[in-house]
Design a protein around this nucleic acid. Structure first.
Lengths: 250, 250
DNA sequence: ATAATAGTGTCTCTCAGACACTATTAA
DNA sequence: TTAATAGTGTCTGAGAGACACTATTAT
């Protein structure tokens, strides 16, 4: 075991403690595109990667944050004001070199939120410190730290789980219709889906409750739905299209 | 962002850093049972939970460990001597209360290894500091810290993924036969499987390579197999029969 | 030969996909 | 009416499960 015992305090290591942060990958769909929320890093003395785009996040404050999950919820609330997001742990990244300030481990969460109300961006303050960036565009940018790698992992996880879960429902404001939900699946996965198969699958999974008819811009009105249990996503018995291989490492 | 700036060093928080540990849930199959490796905690001054069983792990040493993954590999090597384990990140647990010594976050990995050679336990040293415990027994024990919760999550993840991946292959020494692999699936999942369906599925997934015939104690000899790519598990196009599929609307 | 285990053939059931069909709304 | 969109019915194919069948080995 690594629990060497220095003379001073037994059982707690004498060597330096790593820096600990929490980052959140926040997805939504705006203008028929899957987008991720990024923040512009400050140009302050000692701050690494000034001016670069980064995932929202920051250091754990042991006096404020009761747990990792609470810390992620707090950061998400600060950025979006959302109260009932879908929030799931993605993983952790830690090494001696990923932050110039020292050995640093980050706990990464990913969140699915409905798009912000039109007109305002994210907050109502003047400076656009945060912006929604189309995911494939964001993947091509040079983000701060190893955030490009983390974002890639989040997108892979999202696209992977969308094949067999109801995750895209959390990207829509309620109530939503089945055609809207299908469109969201198609946007996230980047391919068209068959209407009949899609509807059978959604309704058979029993995770939606009817919420009255909703009229669109044209044509027949559609049934509106709400998510039955916002705490968890439904899992379908078969995937839409089979994936090949799960990777252990990067 | 949480990056408050005290007068001294900008961008690095002035408040206390959390403790950071890495724990590893190591599974294998011994005597037709799924087992997990647990260590007996020392009865030393200041050590929490003395004498309790715990998952193997310990503090990150920023001078030794280049990354979280390396740290997990090191701890796994110290316990099992294994060189090519299946190692996957499970998640992280962090809160103000999970360790009496202070705000502590642990990064948990889970590993699948073949059973140790018979005769020796894990290492060759005298004191049995670590032992293989049958998982359902281990789940009922009062483990140190929140390790019971972590173990439960690891078992759930393992059993869940076994329904649609080739993970159990990593629990066997190579080469192994298809009947041995089927037995391993049955042990992990706790239910019998159909031989014909099982074999079709394994061979169709193209993750095994033939490695010569292997004679058992009785009956016809069986073909031996090795894993084609030990870095990743194969993913099957459909899950084995799951409970939720059975429940239908009337 | 028999016992024991390895491995296959064939049926059925379920569900995803394809795609044509009907239903409802606004103009 | 027509255009547009919502929603359904029906066929097919892939793959899982059930289970009876054949194959190979030791004694």
């Amino acid at each position: 075991m690594a629990t060497k015992k220095p003379t001073a305090r037994p059982s707690v290591p004498a060597f330096e403690r790593p820096l600990v942060t929490v980052d959140v990958v926040i997805f939504t769909v705006i203008d028929e595109q899957l987008k991720v929320l990024l923040v512009r890093r400050l140009d302050a003395a000692g701050d690494p990667h000034p001016g670069r785009l980064a995932l929202p996040g920051g250091f754990i404050n042991v006096d404020v944050d009761a747990s990792l999950h609470d810390c992620a919820l707090r950061k998400l609330g600060e950025k979006t004001g959302l109260q009932t997001p879908y929030l799931e742990q993605l993983g952790s990244w830690g090494s001696a070199t990923r932050d110039p300030r020292g050995w640093c481990a980050t706990h990464v969460y990913f969140a699915l939120v409905p798009p912000p109300e039109t007109g305002e961006e994210t907050g109502s303050k003047a400076p656009p410190v945060s912006e929604w960036v189309e995911v494939d565009t964001a993947l091509r940018k040079r983000l701060a730290f190893d955030h490009a790698e983390i974002l890639a992992a989040a997108v892979e996880r999202l696209r992977g789980k969308v094949e067999y879960t109801s995750l895209p429902a959390f990207l829509l404001p309620e109530p939503f219709t089945l055609p809207q939900l299908q469109r969201t699946y198609e946007i996230v996965l980047g391919r068209p889906m068959d209407k009949s198969a899609f509807r059978k699958r959604m309704l058979d999974a029993q995770f939606l409750i009817e919420a009255g008819s909703i009229a669109g811009d044209a044509g027949r009105a559609a049934m509106g739905y709400r998510i039955l249990d916002r705490e968890r996503a439904a899992v379908f018995p078969r995937t839409f299209r089979s994936v090949e291989v799960l990777s252990t490492k990067d």
